[in-house]
Design a protein around this nucleic acid. Structure first.
Lengths: 209, 209
DNA sequence: TTGTGTGAATTCCTTCACAGCG
DNA sequence: CGCTGTGAAGGAATTCACACAA
C-alpha cells in the first residue's frame, strides 16, 4: 500500500468479486484471467495487473482458486463484515431501496430511513420506522452508521449532504442529479444519477441512427 | 467526428449539461470553465478540452453563454427530442422507477413496464399497465422503444437482455449485478448495480479507520 | 503445457502554458 | 485585461510479450 491503488482499479474489484460469487454458486472451483475477462469484456492482462496490486493470488498453469480469491477480495473491499446503511428520503426510490432484498445477502443492512414529510414519519417500510430528518444527526451518530444512500429531491441534496457529514457519515451514494460539494478527505462520494446514465447512452444511440 | 470522441469525455457531458441547467434555473446567464470546474471538482482545462471536441462554444474573455451551451449539449447528447423507455421488472426498483417523476422533465418517458408475475400483469402503476414479459418482443417492436432499464432478478438478467436485443433495443441500463454479455456494436450498456457502488466505497471507508 | 506476474512499450488522458480574440 | 482553444508535455492506464512456476 506504499503507492495508493488507482481508483479505477478499485472500481473493477466489485465486479470481479460478484462474478466470482456467481461462478462459485454455479459450482465452479477455479478460473483464469482469460475466462473472467471474457465474461466481463475486459482483457486478461488487465485482470492480472489489477489483482497483482494486492498480492499473488493465482497459481501458474492453473489459474485462480475461486473460493480463495473471493476471500481475498472480501478482505480488500472490507466486506468481511457487514455494513449498516441509512437511506435519506423515503420517496419512490428511497422506498424501493428500503424494500429491496438484494442488499442484506451482500452485507449491507438498511438500518435507518429518513424523510421530511409528516405523512411518512412514523410509518413503516417493512419493519423499518421512517424517522424525521430533523433527527438525522443524533440518530446516525447513535447508530454509528457510516454509509448513506441519498434519494432526496435535488433541491435538498446539498443541505442534507452537509448534515450527513456533520453526523459522521463517511460514504454517500448520491442518486440525485446534484453534484455534491463536500470535503474530499472526509467523505467518499459516488454519483449514480439515472438521468445522467441514460444521457450517456443516448449520445451513442443517436449516432448509430 | 473523424476520431471518435473518447467515452470518458462523453460520460462527463451529462454532468455538465445538468449543472448548466441548474445554473440557468437560478437565473445565471454566463459561466466560465473555471466556475463550472470548481462546482464539479474538475479542472478548467479539462472542461475546455472536452467541449472543444465538439466545437468552439465559448467567447474569449467572456466564457460561455449558458443557454447556448445547453442547446449545443442537448443536440450532442441527442436530447433535443424525448425518448421512450421500457422498464423490465416491476419489483421494488422497477416500480420506483415507473413512479419516479424525475425522468419526464428530462425527456425520458416510461412507456412500457413488464413483469413475469401473474399477480402483477394487468395491474397498473400510475397510468401504466404492467405487461407480460412473454409479450416483450412484439410490444417493444410495436412501440419502437430503444432504451430499456433492467430491474429483474439477477438470475433472469442475461436471458431477458437477449430478448431485448431481439426486440431491437439499443441501450440497456442494467441495475442487476450480472455483467451482461451482448453484441457490443448493437447495444449500448451501462452497469449501475448499487451493491458494486457500495463496495467501491467500503474499500476506502475501511482504509481510513 | 498452461496461465500467472511483471517489466517494457504503447496508448490514452490530463494538465500546462500560451497565443490570440473580444 | 479575462478567458477560450489548443499544441506540447507530462502522467496514467492498458496491452504486450515473456520468464518462470506448477
Amino acid at each position: 500500500m506504499q503507492t495508493p491503488i488507482p481508483d479505477i482499479v478499485v472500481s473493477r474489484l466489485p465486479v470481479y468479486f460478484q462474478t466470482l460469487q456467481t461462478m462459485q454458486a454455479e459450482g465452479q472451483h477455479t478460473t483464469s484471467s482469460k475466462e473472467l475477462g471474457e465474461k466481463l469484456g475486459i482483457s486478461a492482462a488487465q485482470i492480472r495487473k489489477d489483482l497483482s496490486q494486492f498480492g499473488e493470488f493465482g497459481k501458474q498453469g492453473t489459474g485462480y482458486i475461486i473460493s480463495f480469491l473471493i476471500d481475498q477480495l472480501k478482505t480488500i473491499l472490507n466486506m468481511d463484515h457487514s455494513w449498516d446503511v441509512a437511506v435519506i428520503g423515503a420517496g419512490n426510490l428511497g422506498k424501493a431501496i428500503a424494500h429491496y432484498h438484494g442488499f442484506a445477502p451482500q452485507g449491507f443492512n438498511i438500518k435507518l430511513v429518513f424523510d421530511t414529510s409528516p405523512d411518512l414519519i412514523g410509518t413503516n417500510i417493512g419493519d423499518l420506522n421512517i424517522l424525521d430528518i430533523d433527527e438525522l444527526i443524533p440518530c446516525i451518530k447513535k447508530a454509528g452508521v457510516k454509509i448513506a444512500m441519498l434519494t432526496v429531491p435535488d433541491a435538498a441534496a446539498q443541505a442534507v449532504a452537509d448534515e450527513l457529514v456533520k453526523a459522521g457519515i463517511e460514504g454517500i451514494l448520491n442518486y440525485t442529479s446534484t453534484p455534491l460539494n463536500l470535503p474530499p478527505r472526509v467523505v467518499h462520494l459516488r454519483h449514480s444519477d439515472p438521468v445522467s446514465q441514460l444521457q450517456h447512452m443516448t449520445y451513442y444511440i443517436g449516432k448509430s441512427k
